[in-house]
């Protein structure tokens, strides 16, 4: 991921900022310009998520994606935020402690570094609540 590609999404990645449709009340993460429910009639405003939610499903990744070799094995999960949207994120806990339906909360963590340039990426992970 290039620097501009990462940099422009920093508010979303660091603070779980997304959007909300004032027409139908749907929340979006990441922020969207068009509400998938109301489409162009929806009026979109920024929204910062509370960061609590529950585990919908998860896996323990043994063969990592590039940039994640050092963190392997890691727990990858789909989290349903309390406001409604789901998000793919890592869980920081012991693999045997994860359960579907488990309550979790967001934390700010290092997400890895880019080998060639030594850039360190930060983002949101989740821990048991």
């Amino acid at each position: 991921m290039s620097v501009p590609m990462f940099w422009r999404e920093i508010p979303s990645r660091y603070n779980l900022s997304g959007s909300r449709c004032t027409m139908c009340g749907a929340y979006h993460y990441p922020a969207r310009n068009i509400c998938p429910k109301c489409r162009r009639s929806g009026k979109i405003e920024p929204y910062n998520f509370g960061g609590t939610g529950e585990v919908v499903t998860y896996t323990v990744v043994n063969t990592p994606a590039k940039r994640f070799e050092k963190y392997t094995p890691y727990i990858l999960a789909i989290i349903k935020l309390d406001e409604g949207p789901k998000i793919t994120a890592q869980l920081v806990c012991e693999p045997e402690d994860v359960k579907i339906g488990m309550r979790v909360r967001a934390v700010f963590r290092k997400m890895g570094e880019s080998g060639e340039r030594g850039i360190i990426y930060y983002g949101t992970k989740f821990v048991p609540a």
Binding site: T57, A65, A77, I78, Q90
Partner: peptide
């Protein structure tokens, strides 16, 4: 989605593993 799945460390086996688990 490279930015919102890949950034978190998702691989294809990882995504399908989450389908399998559920």
């Amino acid at each position: 989605d490279r930015e919102w799945e890949g950034f978190a460390g998702a691989t294809f086996p990882g995504l399908y593993a989450m389908i399998a688990r559920l």
